[in-house]
Simulated scan of single mutants.
Amino acid sequence: MRDDRRLRRRRETVQEILDTALDVMAVEGVAALSMAEVARRVGVRPPSLYQYFPSKTAVYDALFERGMRETVEVLEPYRAGLSEDPRGAILAGQQATVAWAMANPVLAQLLYWRPVPGFEPSPRAFEPAVRQLEILRTALQAAVQAGQLSPAAAAEEGIALYTALVSGVISQQLANEPSAQVEQGRFSRLTRTAVDMFFHFYAPEEGESHGSDLRRGRAPAAD
C-alpha cells in the first residue's frame, strides 16, 4: 500500500510538472521552456525536478508522447464508420483532429512544427505517431475498397500529400488565428475543402488518362 501511494504521488507530480511546463511554454514560447520557472510554479527547488525528468529534453519528449497519444485517442472513435462511409469517417476524424490542435496549441506546435532546435522524439514517444499513420493508411485503404479513391491514394505519396494538406491547415490556423473558434477560423474551416480536394485528385477512374498518370507519379504520354 505504501508503494502504491508513492507511485501514485509520483505519477501525479509528473503530470503536474508536464501541465506546468505547458503553461510556461504557452507564455514564453515552446522553445523557451525554463526548468527553473517550472520548479518555481510547482513549488520545488530546481534540482528536485531532475528526480522526475533528467533533462529539459525529457520534458519535451514526454509532452510529444502525450500529444501524439491524445491525437490517436481522438481518431480511434471514427474507425467504426470506415465500414459504412470511409470518406465521411475520414472527414469527421480530421475535423476532430483540427479541433484538438486548436484546443491544444502548444502540444500541436510540438507535434506539427519543429520549434525546439535539436529536439527529436525518442522511439517510445514517436510510437503513437506510427500508430496514427497506420490509422490513416487503414482509412484510405477502406476508401479505396469502397470505390471512393484510387489505389494511389493509399500509397506512400498519397499518404504524404494527405498529411501535408492537413498539417498545412493546422499550421496556418495556429500561426495566424490561434484563438479563433474552429468553425470560424480562416483556415480551420477549410478542413472539409482540403479533404474534398484530396478525394477529387485521387478519384477513381476507368482506364488510364493524363490525370490518372500524374496521380500515379508517371509523366503523361506525348500526344
Rank of each mutant, 00 (worst) to 15 (best):
Q173Y: 06
V166K: 07
V169I: 15
R131L: 05
T191D: 02
F198R: 03
Q173M: 05
M68R: 08
A125E: 08
F119P: 01
A31V: 02
R11N: 08
Y52R: 01
T163C: 05
G118R: 01
S188V: 10
L161M: 14
T20C: 13
D196C: 10
L149V: 06
L161V: 13
R79G: 05
T193Y: 14
A142C: 03
E12A: 15
A164L: 13
A32F: 11
R87Y: 12
E16A: 13
R11H: 12
E65K: 11
G158S: 10
Q141V: 04
I170R: 01
V24I: 15
R9N: 15
G88E: 05
L174Q: 02
D3Y: 13
Q145H: 13
F126C: 00
L18I: 13
R218W: 13
P204H: 11
S48F: 14
L136I: 12
L22G: 01
G93M: 11
W100R: 05
F187R: 04
P123E: 01
P128G: 00
A194W: 04
V27M: 03
S209Q: 01
P47L: 10
S167V: 08
Q173D: 05
A160E: 07
A103K: 14
N104C: 03
F126R: 10
A32V: 08
V27F: 02
P47D: 10
V27N: 00
A108V: 09
P178K: 13
F187W: 15
S34H: 08
A154R: 11
L174D: 00
E156F: 09
L140K: 09
A89I: 08
E16G: 04
P46L: 05
V116S: 08
V59G: 00
G211K: 14
Q132N: 13
G67W: 02
Q51Y: 14
E205L: 11
G158W: 09
F199R: 05
L91V: 15
G168T: 06
M102G: 01
S209N: 07
P46S: 04
V30W: 11
P77R: 07
A222D: 12
R215G: 02
E127A: 15
V169T: 09
H210P: 09
D223G: 12
V144H: 07
A143N: 07
P46H: 02
P204L: 12
P204K: 06
P46T: 10
A89R: 06
I90D: 03
F126E: 01
A125F: 05
H200R: 13
P220A: 11
I90V: 15
R2S: 14
V106A: 03
L33W: 10
Q172V: 01
S212K: 14
R2N: 10
M102Y: 02
F53A: 02
F201S: 00
T193N: 12
R87K: 14
R41Y: 06
V59A: 00
G88F: 09
P54H: 12
A26Q: 12
R215M: 14
A21G: 04
G43E: 08
A194S: 11
R11I: 07
M197T: 12
Y60H: 06
L107F: 07
A146E: 10
G211Y: 14
R192H: 03
V74F: 03
L63T: 07
R189A: 03
G217T: 09
A143S: 08
R40H: 13
P128M: 00
A89P: 06
L82N: 08
Q181E: 15
L165M: 14
L165I: 10
L174K: 06
A99Q: 08
A108L: 08
D3V: 14
P128K: 00
T13W: 11
A108E: 03
A180I: 06
